[in-house]
Design a protein around this nucleic acid. Sequence first.
DNA 1: AATGAATGAGCATTCATTCAT
DNA 2: TATGAATGAATGCTCATTCAT
Lengths: 215, 215, 215, 215
Amino acid sequence: MNQFRETFNKLSPEKQGRILEAAIDEFAGHGYDSANINSIAQKAGVSVGSIYNYFESKEDLYLAVVHHAVETLKAALEDIVTREDDLFKRIEMILRSIQTFTRRYVNLTRLYNEMTTESRSDLTWTIVSKMEGVTAELYASYIKEAQENGRVRPDIDPKYFAFFLDNLFVQLQFAYACDYYKNRLKMFVGEDALDNDELMVEQLMKFIRGAFCLQ
Amino acid sequence: MNQFRETFNKLSPEKQGRILEAAIDEFAGHGYDSANINSIAQKAGVSVGSIYNYFESKEDLYLAVVHHAVETLKAALEDIVTREDDLFKRIEMILRSIQTFTRRYVNLTRLYNEMTTESRSDLTWTIVSKMEGVTAELYASYIKEAQENGRVRPDIDPKYFAFFLDNLFVQLQFAYACDYYKNRLKMFVGEDALDNDELMVEQLMKFIRGAFCLQ
Amino acid sequence: MNQFRETFNKLSPEKQGRILEAAIDEFAGHGYDSANINSIAQKAGVSVGSIYNYFESKEDLYLAVVHHAVETLKAALEDIVTREDDLFKRIEMILRSIQTFTRRYVNLTRLYNEMTTESRSDLTWTIVSKMEGVTAELYASYIKEAQENGRVRPDIDPKYFAFFLDNLFVQLQFAYACDYYKNRLKMFVGEDALDNDELMVEQLMKFIRGAFCLQ
Amino acid sequence: MNQFRETFNKLSPEKQGRILEAAIDEFAGHGYDSANINSIAQKAGVSVGSIYNYFESKEDLYLAVVHHAVETLKAALEDIVTREDDLFKRIEMILRSIQTFTRRYVNLTRLYNEMTTESRSDLTWTIVSKMEGVTAELYASYIKEAQENGRVRPDIDPKYFAFFLDNLFVQLQFAYACDYYKNRLKMFVGEDALDNDELMVEQLMKFIRGAFCLQ
DNA sequence: AATGAATGAGCATTCATTCAT
DNA sequence: TATGAATGAATGCTCATTCAT
């Protein structure tokens, strides 16, 4: 499963970064099929030939990009989760991280949306499954722990609630990064929804706390 | 909308249906760019020339398909919402409808995911916005009404909670129809997640009730 | 084994001819790999797209061309062979036909040489084998018949002699059509070798008669 | 020939051999255009850069390979021809040499076939002409000598008969080395044609003796 | 109105050749 | 001298769109 060739790894991090960024840009903005390898090469300031020295094919490049995106997201998540120990503090941290992360890496989030598309799902699932698995496991265990501590109601299935929680996270990510979901967010809560991060956290924390706790 | 669409509307409903279905199939399965007009024509049993008599361009056909999808979804929603009057009964009805509807119209749901993709969002938002607007309005008003009746906690913003609620709906739809989200669901709650509709409703209703009510 | 699609057969013979001729030209002159589909299309006065409507791929077009070449050669041979009944008269007729045929269809003969090349042999043998089989059978039976009539020495294997005979034919074809073999012929018998058809027939008939008869 | 070839000649014979063999392999198996310089370098265990230090271009390498092939063939021929003095003993020796040589140097023979192809003929003729010239001269002189000794019929043109003789040799070479001609041989004389060298020599000697002698 | 053959711009990919190390 | 990464022109093939019938 060499998503990318040895040759790419030998490149300077700066160059690797330029190529990955150019590719993310293109794939996130145009989708896999309309993405143009020549454009990616041009944006990255390398020749097409070089792209094909680093990656076997368009698909291979796409997979490398997805792999990179997943690694970046995973790193961000791990960073958060180890810094807190209370379930709701963790959740709040995640929400705030989503707000900063999705704005910093808009295209990465857009790419994630693109990836879930039917035509690409086979390709990407193998790569992404690992991360989703880790997340699922992690959330469920935190919820269980909180149940044992009596901070979360005992009559729920941690696995299902982990799923619902992550669903809210995913949708929040899209709402901050993808035009369609941005528009949808504005339609639901108003034009200035994207400017009031604090209110979003406050309301969503109320929603989640309510869902998890017997007050 | 334009001279071309008129010619399409004059067609027998049966033929219209064949063409729309073929197009939904193709767009949902391959994405906009990889969708092949010639394949659509063949699947629908008409000539390419005819497709171009009915629709100005690939984009126009895509928009017509999206429009049709939205109308179908809207009709389904309206049907539900008018049959009940309690907020939570309505929500439960919607959940069950999502379960049957997404299985019956798999490709419609897949198309909805495809639509939200960055490369297509400009195109589709104009069409979809109306429906999303109606939904947003409706949910918010139901929540407000329930707040006034004391069935929903008073310290929340109905608009935000409508948004979170719909997010859960959207994610549920994808989980039942799109391969990527199907896999993700299985990863979170187990391999047989798709076979236990009752449990899903039960858990999700607990989640939602908890979020909305002060017990 | 549809060497070419239905669509090609529906074309006017004139257009079919133009395309085949352009393709023979290109394949014979540049070899399979360097042959340029765009050039073929241009020479034939059709679009590249059309070429790909008629033939699935470059390989498919090549096979169609080879098929056509074989059919043309077969027709020429059959014509000759049925017009005479004496072995040596037949051979002489064939020699003279080679002289006119290879000059009229230079590229067909060049293509035949190209076809025998290692990189193409798998591709073409299936198509050509039938014709070579017919030829082998035919020549051997004529020789056998002549042996029975006492016109050919009895102590030879008709199959081997048919092979040697055909070898001389093949080399003669190449000598009249392919530059390399033309040069070689000139080197062996002199600069004006190609202008003295009568002498070639005379000498070659002596060679062959000698080989076959006990004087 | 030029500054580049000199660098090649300075190489150890072992390295020269590796490069030539790799190149012969590639050119014989894929044809000139599809032959890949990078593959040749890899097979030979040197870098592409080195190949381009030794040879000016792909064409130059090809020519060097052809030159080498010709030299190898010439050496083999000279060896035979000086060891016998009777025309027919020489011919028989040549036939047997073809049988061993073409099996030992399959790719060399395949390359010879490839060389005669139209697209390559200009390129190669200058190099090969010398050898073909020597051969032509040699055979004709032997035949003339044999005519003078009364062992060959006087009423034939030695040049033409030298040509026919060499044609039989060329075709025999191909029949033992090139897949297309192998198949053709089997078609003419049977599946086990390649296993019965003695019978081939016997029959072909009968054919040739008959052609040359007045019995 | 319906057809489907014809078009040609557009794109992924290859590979001979160069040149900095 | 040897290396092999970088280059970019060249080409097979696709497919939305047109239009004569």
